[in-house]
Amino acid sequence: MGHEQVVFCHDEPTGLRAIIAIHNTTLGPALGGTRMWPYASEEEALIDVLRLSRGMTYKAAISGLNLGGGKAVIIGDPEKLKNEAFMRRFGRFVDSLGGRYITAEDVNMKTRDMEYIHMETDYVTGIPQSMGGSGDPSPVTAYGVYMGMKAAAKFVFGTDSLANRKIAVQGVGQVGMYLVQRLVKEGATVFITDINQDKLQKVASETGAKVVAPDEIYDLDVDIYAPCALGATLNDDTIPRLKASIVAGGANNQLKDEHKHGYMLIDRGITYAPDFLINAGGLINVGAEYYGPYNSDKAHADAEKIYDTTLEILNMASEDGINTQEAAMKIAERRIAAIGRIKLPY
């Protein structure tokens, strides 16, 4: 995948096992979140962090940010392992890279965790607003997904209104929750699922969204399917089951195979809003914090531009006869190549 650096982190006293992957720093230092997950093996974690960090390179490039692509994964159960010493030890590993990698929140990470990391390094974003940071980036991520979804609706249905549209949201973590709130507010009929039953019932109670079983989400007769959990949910098994006209969600690496499943969606007549494009709001937000001074209104305004970029990508893919993921990657690669001619990697 062309990575510049992969670092395996291990600390016996705290039980920390992590991998930091730096994909490309042509545009600037690699900024990307840290996720914690009980991976079945180190190999599974490595595959995930390599794919995620590569996606961050494209996400930064297509968003016009002067940032490179990186990501970190921590192996283990966050409920059992996370504490102050654990996160601060991870912060020291981040600091040892001298600014080539800047971390932020991702799955199973909270603002408090970023605060612990910040005790050991300046190379962290998403720290509390009380400390001069931008806080939780999830609301801006969800706003970008919402803008990308509306653009896809405009392309497919001729109007970007989501009122009375039926939308299936898979995963109601921080991003999924904020997205559901926006969709319900606009008047959409929303179906939700998640493996965390407590979170699922809480979001359903607060928004009126309808709860469905995890596997049932693929079979619903809806207009839009929004994957907002882990990746690779668009695959040989699920794509034939989809009845949606649009796929637009906040999850990373939604296509298990970018080429094969990108074209499988086309064959099914389903429009795909590239994940690394429409979920870039969080990166836009923490990037604004890193380069500072942070301004929430400016971050939201920049995330709103995802609407126009999504329409550009969808039209380009249609005109060129390629899938939307490839169209988005072409634009991102073009910018990286152009800037690469005038500067060295960070």
Rank of each mutant, 00 (worst) to 15 (best):
V247R: 00
A232T: 14
P240R: 04
T238M: 06
L242D: 01
D223R: 08
L234R: 06
L230S: 06
I224S: 02
P227M: 03
N235D: 12
L255A: 11
P227L: 08
T238P: 01
N235C: 10
L255S: 12
C228L: 02
I224V: 15
L230D: 01
L230M: 15
C228V: 07
L242T: 00
N252K: 15
V222Y: 08
D236C: 11
A248C: 09
A226P: 02
A251I: 06
G250L: 07
Y225S: 04
G249Y: 00
A226R: 03
D237R: 14
Q254M: 12
Y225K: 06
A229E: 02
D237A: 14
D236F: 10
R241T: 06
T233V: 15
Y225T: 02
A244V: 11
A244W: 11
G250H: 01
P240W: 12
L242R: 05
G231C: 06
T233A: 13
I246Y: 03
S245K: 15
A244L: 10
A244P: 14
D237C: 06
I246Q: 04
N252F: 09
T233P: 02
L234D: 03
Q254P: 05
D223H: 15
L234A: 01
A226K: 00
Q254C: 10
A226C: 14
V222G: 09
P240H: 12
P227A: 14
T233D: 08
G249A: 11
V247M: 09
I239F: 06
P240N: 07
K243N: 13
Q254L: 05
P240Q: 07
A229L: 04
D223M: 08
I239P: 02
G249Q: 09
A251V: 10
A232V: 09
A226Q: 03
Y225Q: 05
L230H: 03
D223G: 10
V222W: 07
T238L: 04
S245L: 13
D223S: 11
Y225D: 00
P227F: 00
L234F: 02
K243M: 10
T238E: 04
S245Y: 14
G250E: 07
Q254V: 06
N253D: 11
K243Q: 14
L230C: 07
A226H: 03
A229M: 01
N253W: 04
N235S: 10
C228E: 00
K243H: 15
T238K: 07
D236Q: 11
A248Y: 07
L230W: 04
V222K: 09
A248K: 02
L234Q: 09
A251D: 02
V247Q: 06
A232Q: 14
N253P: 12
N253I: 07
C228D: 01
A232M: 12
A248H: 04
R241V: 13
D223A: 10
A251E: 04
A226F: 10
A248S: 14
I224T: 07
I246S: 05
C228Q: 01
P227H: 04
A244C: 15
C228W: 00
P240G: 05
V222D: 09
L234C: 08
A248G: 09
V247C: 09
D223W: 12
I246L: 06
V247T: 09
D237G: 11
T233N: 08
L255F: 13
R241N: 05
Q254Y: 13
D237P: 00
V222E: 12
A229N: 09
Y225G: 00
C228T: 04
I246W: 02
P240C: 06
N252G: 07
S245A: 15
I239C: 05
T238N: 14
